[in-house]
Design a protein around this nucleic acid. Structure first.
Lengths: 124, 124
DNA sequence: TTCAAGCCTGCACAACTGTGCAGGTATCCA
DNA sequence: TGGATACCTGCACAGTTGTGCAGGCTTGAA
């Protein structure tokens, strides 16, 4: 397997096979970036708390999220704006209330992973 | 269940039960922060590529990582410094070569999740 | 001892991101 | 119609973070 791009073929390597394994493991740059972007959305405590709440407490209103998390409503709105732009959440208007929910499967899977990890201690 | 902290008990809520569910879902602030910090480490394409390579190509040297990812060796070193400080990777010196590996189980699980998701397309 | 390879660090610059404020829109009720 | 609730947006500031450069340390070979 010669997976090393031509532009770097002249570099000396320590363990040539590991370099090939590594390149195979990394895969397409686009995929890596997509995952990194996903993780970035979860990388802030406020947004993560919002997403955990949205994921497990079903469709929930903005002001309720503010009460549950202790954040200001403008901060919640700002966070939701970002998540909406990224296609992770969607809001449904009901009168003057907008209830949000998680619509991205990959992110939902990560949140489940995260939540089960948290509860492991509680079950013990 | 009255999970709303006293400091916010006076706020009006839209769906009271969802607020309680949300608070339960969020759990301890410390836990949320710990997960956010974990995600933050994976939130940058360079670091994520390095971690994917480390996770699947076993212990591998710094310069090999630079060749595999196309990053400069100083950038790789800088990223590894961060990951080392966070306790996610560890390096073992062998002569003048230092081979790194992932030592944090929670992060490793996320990387596995990430890798299997990537290959789903390749198997089809 | 001398030199190169492999890796690490400190520093400064640029870019990004979260936060709060002030104000705007839409909906409902009196 | 007037006002209150629920939510959204633009803007400016501060803190954080990635990046490259220059240089230092350690190891191994000649």
């Amino acid at each position: 397997m010669h997976l090393v791009p031509a532009e770097r073929a002249d570099h000396r390597t320590i363990d040539g096979h590991r370099v090939c394994d590594a390149i195979a493991a990394i895969g397409e740059p686009g995929e890596v970036r997509a995952w990194a972007d996903r993780f970035a959305l979860l990388a802030e405590p406020g947004r993560l708390a919002l997403l955990l709440a949205l994921h497990q407490a079903g469709p929930i209103a903005v002001s309720d999220l503010a009460v549950a998390t202790g954040m200001k409503d403008t901060a919640v709105s700002q966070a939701l704006r970002l998540l909406r732009a990224a296609g992770v959440v969607e809001g449904a208007r009901d009168g003057r209330v907008v209830r949000y929910r998680v619509v991205d499967d990959a992110t939902a899977a990560l949140l489940t992973h995260c939540a089960t990890g948290e509860h492991r201690r509680a079950e013990a």
